[in-house]
Structure formats: structure tokens, C-alpha cells
Design a protein around this nucleic acid. Sequence first.
DNA 1: TTGAAAGCGATACCAG
DNA 2: CTGGTATCGCTTTCAA
Lengths: 351, 351
Amino acid sequence: MKDTTELTRPKPTVNDIARVAGVSLATVDRVLNARPGVRDVTIEKVNKAIAELGFVRDTAAANLARRRQYRLMFILPETDNEFVIALDAEITAQSERLLHQRTRLKRRTIPPFDPQAMVRILDSVTTQDTDGVAIFGPETPSVRDAVNRAKERGIAVATMVSDLPSSIRDHFIGIDNVAAGRTAALLMGRFVRKAGRILIVTGSRLARDHLERRAGFDAVMANKFPNLEVAATIEGRDDPELIGSLLPVVFEKNSEIVGIYSSAAGNGGLIEFLEKDTSSRDVVVIAHELTQTSRTALSKGTFDALISQDSGHIIRSAIRVLKSAADKLPIDPKQERIRIDVYLSENLPPL
Amino acid sequence: MKDTTELTRPKPTVNDIARVAGVSLATVDRVLNARPGVRDVTIEKVNKAIAELGFVRDTAAANLARRRQYRLMFILPETDNEFVIALDAEITAQSERLLHQRTRLKRRTIPPFDPQAMVRILDSVTTQDTDGVAIFGPETPSVRDAVNRAKERGIAVATMVSDLPSSIRDHFIGIDNVAAGRTAALLMGRFVRKAGRILIVTGSRLARDHLERRAGFDAVMANKFPNLEVAATIEGRDDPELIGSLLPVVFEKNSEIVGIYSSAAGNGGLIEFLEKDTSSRDVVVIAHELTQTSRTALSKGTFDALISQDSGHIIRSAIRVLKSAADKLPIDPKQERIRIDVYLSENLPPL
DNA sequence: TTGAAAGCGATACCAG
DNA sequence: CTGGTATCGCTTTCAA
């Protein structure tokens, strides 16, 4: 590890290329932007100069001259799910900052679990008004096809939270949900102190992220914690009321529940039940997503751990990724990797 | 949550201000940059126009015109500590990307725990050659004073990993180490399955981060886990060999060690001991920082959990923060918050 | 104390 | 096919 020497050779510009290649600025620009109407020999000359000088275009200057605006669109489900609301708030927050950085954010909502609404919006987007779209929604063949059509029209597309792996989207922004489920299971197994049964509260069978978490959880439970048995499952549809109404029934039927894995949303109903019901005192509870509700539950000890993904990071990453895709520029993979966050009562971020 | 309407009123420019205020471009610029030689009445007129139009300066254009270069410096300890090496690698990686974004990164190293070397470098930095400095090093009054002098000379300063809270640095980039220690203790208490003693391996008494972790760990241990007793402490000086040589002695003297908290660096020695010594089979081990070494130990089950901070995030954040400070622009606090990461064998990032 | 005009690095229109 | 030149939004001499 040596101290860096500061070599400050001035960066070559288009003017330098023009001079070295013996052509005009306009021609350099044509070659640079692969515009037609330049003889092959001329192209060669210019490219040679570019290579020789090690030229790299100054994107800021180019965007200024071009009066470029990045027009991005976010499509989210219309729901009172706190995590989605957090994503939405981050979009709003970034909107403000980006206004002065040649970037406009548009927001569209679809009814939850409505693939056709997603398809309609995707199909309505044109390069005339939009450079990139980031979507969070159901995974169906029709959505996949609409994504592919948008891509073919030249629009950058990113999936958020729940992927659409069979599509040709530019990028997926979110966590590995199988690993997230496995992590939840590992924590569960190590936190629980006696043998018994585990209850799972899932969301919807249409959501790939929920299914993947479940698969990961089950796998680790089966392999590493034979003394624990995944006994019952509630399909909560992210609905606190529904969850709240189903829980008492399950607890009556299953006497030996020692852990609950809430793999989806709608934690409000679960928390209400846990804080009322005395028979569930010692149950280890692990849920997903850090929100106001889950944060409080974790602080109080109602929840024992939270598996989460940073909504701010997801939105900022989506913006960077879509911009890069629009400019056909590479991304920084490390910066765009969304972490599987583990929160305990002691490592909560300050409010 | 409503879909956004796309209002596209064109952003006002300096020309608009000049026109509305009835002055020239040059005068607008003088006011904008608080340069002298403008009558108060004129300043008023311009400011009024700015407010009326809601003008916000286009930083990219300004930087272009100004031929601005952000010249940033990183000062790190010269050590074979893997975490520091990771920071260093991130600096190198960002250097590449930033070369074409008007930003040069310089790197300086100091001998570990050598406040005077840090002071010398800080004192040698001038606004002629540097806009901002990010430092990671010992916390002493002399360093604090040097930081304050640099600040007063107009240089932006950020502390990384270990703070210098009594200084007037612009920003601290790192985690709350007390909370990190508390988190480690909580995991320890919940993972350990029988009463016993806990061994702590610390680093140096000169490092604020190590002390803070220790304090947080002890507090939670004492309050929440009375069946566990923090019994022994090894001061490892981040040195694997030293740690490796001390461990057998400690284990001979203390028969009931059920957990080890490695709060600093030098994990190599610890791992070697654990993988050889059979008496430590069931000991719960929690360490800091995700590195190649600790990652392997976690995968193998030698370590049970890791508390970490993202080195890539730290470096990127330092760059953004120093740039903003240099331009006297606000930062996005959420984006700059470094998380206390918890890693288990199941949520390791892909290689 | 103020203004006119020439850039910064790149793009784009209009001639030739 | 190729070149000249105005322009993007802002800064910075140089004169007045």
C-alpha cells in the first residue's frame, strides 16, 4: 500500500481529438455518437486519435449541451402496506433533490396484484416521454412480455423487490429472498430455546418474494433444526385484520408454538394478537421490513428480529441503474447490491 | 398516494435572473457567489429575482465553467489489517470511476497509532492542492487540533470509522460503536445456551471505536444476561500472533468460557486457536468486520455472527460528504448513514 | 460598480 | 461527407 502520486495530465477533449485527427469538431461528434455520414477512413482516423489520447467523454458537459433530462417512472402497487409507502416516500424525497440534476421522477400506481394494470402502463410508455421504468408488482407472463416489449422499444427497465427473472429487464434491485428466508430460519433456530412448532404467516401465493422466503426458511429449518417443526401456515394476504382473526384459531389448535415467522406484510394484526395473548409470551417472532410498526414491536420485545431491505437504498439504486442503462454506461455492482439487513432491538437506525 | 402529474415548467437560469433584475450576467454571478463590488441595492434586486423565479444553480454547468476539480485526500493507517485494506481497495476502485467526474483521490498512510504523523500530514494540506480530507486514525488532542486548523484553513474534513467528537470536522462516517457492542452482546446472550463466562478480545486502548464497543457490550451483558459473566479480557492490539499466543493461557485458567466477543481486528489468531482447540467447540463467537478471513470462519461455523460496517459505503459516503462540504451543499443524511450490519452464515453477500 | 464577451466540453443545425 | 458556428448554464477576464 503506497501513497498515491498525483499525476495531473490534463484530460483530452473533443478539441484535442479534432486536432490530432485533423478533422472538425462536428465530425468528431459524429463518430463519437455513431451518427451516419462519415467515411470509414475518417472514422478510423478519429478512433485512432481517441485511443491515442485515451479520451473519455465528459458526461456532464454532454448532458448540458444536449439539454438532457432523465425521465424515469416508478410503478408501485396502490396499498397501505407500510413498506410500499416507504418506497413511495423515498421517491418523493429523491424527486426534490433530482429536480436540479436533470432528472424527473414520475409515479404510477396499480391495484395490488393486478398484472393487467401493470401491462397497460408499461405498454403506454414511449421513448418520447420516458427513459426508464422501475416496477414493483406481480410476476406473470403478461407482465414479463410487457417488460420485454418496453425494452425493445428502447426503454430501460428495472424490477424492484420481487424479480421477473425470465424477462430481459436491465437489472433487479432487491435482495435474494431465498437467503432472506434462510437467515430468518437460522435466527429462529438459534433464538428458540425449546423444541416445538413454528407458525408461518405468508402473504400471497402470487408474490415471488414471499414464496422464495418461505422456501429458504423451510430448507434451513429442516436441515439444521430437527427439533423444530414448521407446523402451520396462515395466508395473510398482507392484511392485518385477516391475520388478526386467524391467529387465535391457530393458537387454539396448536399448543406448542414456539416461534412465528411473518414473511410478508400486515404485521399490525400479528402484533395486536401477540400483545394481548398471554399464551404467546415466550414465542420467538421474526418478521420482515423495518417500518414504524415493526420498529416499535422490536423495541418493545414483541418482535425478536427483523429481516429488512433498505427502501431508500432501493430507490436511489433504481435511479442510478436506470440512468446508467439509459446512457448505456456500466454500474458499480457493489454500490447497487441491496443488503439483507438484520435488525435487533440494539442496532436500529436512529429515528 | 396519487400518481404524479408532470409539471414541466422550464427551470430558470442566470439569464432569466439577469433579465428580471435588469442587470448583466456578470452582476448576477457576483451576487450568486458573494463576490465584492456590487451595491446593496443591486444585490437586493438580484436576490429578489432569484427568489421570485425560484432559481437553483446548475452545479454541473458551474463546475464546467469553473473547470472545477474536487481534490480529496484519504489518510489511513499503514497496516495489514484486512478492514483497512478493504477501505484502501475501495479508494482505488472509486479513483478509477471518479477520474472522469472531476474528482481526484489522493491516499496517504501513517504508521498505526501515530498521532504525530497524522498531524504532520494534516498540517501540510493547503487549499492550494486539496479540497477535503477524510481521516481514519487515533483520537488525541493533537490530532483534534490539527483537524481544527485544517478546517479553519478552509479544508473540509471528515472522520471515518472512529470519530473525533471534540473537533469541528464536517462529518463522521461510521457506525455508532456503542450500539454495535450492544448488538453483539444481545446476539451473544441469545445464542449462548448455558450459563458461563464471556471472554473479550479487544484491540487498543487508544482506539475510541474499540472502547465504545466494549462499553456497549458490557452494559447489555450486565443488564439483560445475568447468567453470563464477562470474565476475561485479552488486549490483542489487532495482532493475530499475539492473540493466538494468549488464548491458550486464558482458556486454561477459565474453564467455563461459553462465549468470545472479538471486538477488534486480528481475527486470524482467534480462528486458528478455535479450529485447533477442542475445548472451545461449543463456544459462541462474535467478531467484527466482514473480511475474507472472517467470512470463511462464519461459513465454516467457527464464528457465529459478525458485526460489520460496509467499507464500500464508507468510502463512497466520504467522497460525497467531502464534495458537499467543499461546495457548502447539504447532504442526504439517510444515504450517508452507515448501518450496523449483522452477518450470519446465511446472509453473506455473494462473492 | 457594472457590463460585454470569451470560454468550459460537448452537441446540433445549416451550409457547402 | 465534412466543416463552421451557435448554444447549453455558468464563470471569468477585461474594459468602461
